[in-house]
Amino acid sequence: MSQPSTEPMIEARAVEKWYPNGFHALRGADLTVNRGEVVVIMGPSGSGKSTFIRTFNALEDFQKGQISVDGIALSNDLRNIDAVRREVGMVFQQFNLFPHLSVLENLTLAPVLVRGRPRAEVEGQARRLLERVGIAEQAEKFPGQLSGGQQQRVAIARALCMEPRILLFDEPTSALDPEMVREVLEVMQALANEDITMVVVTHEVKFARHVAHRVVLMSEGVVVEEAAPEVFFTNPSHQRTRRFLDQIL
């Protein structure tokens, strides 16, 4: 496993968020993620994990606190969004592939449109990425013709095709049949060995134990515990973490 540097890529300080209906979803959440680090976020459903990582690429706004991503400050009024979104890729629970485009077009759309790169060059890169996630032969198919595991691997390749420095995963394996979970986790593990920064919301304990540099527990809109995996799973310092682990282990 590569060692992360201590240069912070994501810094979130005392982030507070209210949804338009008044629900207080983040109540002062803190997190620092260093370059090349793999951080796993765990926590009960509804604790604000998705909301939190979605603030990192400005899919959600927030009302109080500071977030900076690769040195770019995300101000409360959502400026700098485009710059940040180019740095940060995201993989969703429901894959969210574009069903009207072929697999290859799913990958090439953003690099050509947003970065203005030549199509031929992007296609070459896209095919190499598809090969890397093990589905080179599906390039011409449409997402609806692939299995869930294959779709999620395409989604990862799609995010990578923009050459992001940070990848966010929001429960990437939760919508998958059990036999497809492994193929996706293997791809993610291979990625973790490169110097890309990853923040992963997941319930996969094995992945957290073996791949994460740090594991974080969220509860009711705040980060409760932050520890190296071996400490997190065997000797956590908070009662809340122990109760959570009792439930999932």
């Binding site: 690429n57 899919l59 485009d82 979104r85 180019r86 940060v88 890729g89 995201m90 969703f92 429901q94 969210n96 592939l97 574009f98 759309l109 953003a110 449109l113 947003v114 970065r115 799609r158 995010a159 923009m162």
Partner: peptide, 13 residues
């Protein structure tokens, strides 16, 4: 689905 919108936005479109 709303996820289509989010996916496109998260890719920088």
């Amino acid at each position: 689905p709303g996820g289509q919108f989010e996916a496109a936005r998260s890719l920088g479109l």
